[in-house]
Design a protein around this nucleic acid. Structure first.
Lengths: 136, 136
DNA sequence: CTATGTGCAAAGTGTTTGCAAATTT
DNA sequence: AAATTTGCAAACACTTTGCACATAG
């Protein structure tokens, strides 16, 4: 997987690139939870030669480093640069994704008027007991 | 999309099929949140001629009718026949999906020992105000 | 008998990868 | 100079579709 000239401990030192910075700018510029393809087209307006592969690579790098996060909606991978802890309301009709501030999620939590909730999904991400044991 | 001989109001009357019943059995037989491909291989043990396309078609039909639900993990579509309201713990290391009973999610909620939570995602699914208005 | 379901193979979608050239440090 | 990043095209994994035949009601 890694060849001899690369550092074996997984952390390549990142170099900056115009492309990656632009990708981040674009994701930050919107609250629309864009797809990779949308980002590609937007970035292309300013960097006409950028390729879709580069956009994917950079979205993945940015997600890995925590600068943006991935959101799955309707089987589609989307990206989100909102660093505040927040939750999502996903409309089954228009497939829109709307942000819900964490601040509103309290014991007397109510969604804004007009949002009709049909399903709730709560996913915890972390390390399970078995993997925890293997690591220590 | 629909031709003249079909009912226009979208609700074809379903016929039962051995294949669909087996697919449902298999999904119900496990708590492992299987992928379509895993289901395919399991069903194949009993119906050696079933095709992957049929498995996909039936998983979609079953999800549509609410008999199973779809879970996305790490960009992979998975299926779940657990009809109890419940949440998921997704291990970032082994990618395992573990069920968390809703009953445990109370004001003094704690995850079982050993689960280390790094991220929390809460997604509400439903109809947004704009779509609500269009419908009424 | 008629509509729905199936198997197969082909097409589609979204994403990743190998490589030589370009860029960053 | 050395290592990372890019653009391109090809590969990939997963899912859907078109069609002729089979099956359920």
């Amino acid at each position: 997987m890694l060849n001899d000239t690369q550092q074996s401990e997984g952390s390549l030192r990142r170099k900056r690139s115009r492309q990656r910075e632009k990708v981040l700018d674009i994701v930050r510029s919107t609250k629309s939870h864009p797809t990779a393809d949308w980002v590609f087209h937007e970035v292309r307006k300013e960097l006409p030669n950028i390729s879709l592969a580069t956009v994917y690579r950079n979205l993945n790098l940015l997600a890995e480093s925590g600068e943006i996060s991935e959101v799955i909606c309707d089987g589609q991978l989307r990206f989100d640069a909102n660093k505040e802890e927040h939750f999502h309301f996903i409309c089954k009709s228009c497939k829109g994704i709307f942000d819900i501030d964490e601040a509103r999620v309290t014991p007397d939590f109510k969604l804004p008027r007009g949002y009709v909730v049909q399903d709730l999904r709560i996913d915890f991400y972390g390390i399970c007991p078995a993997c925890q044991t293997q690591r220590s």
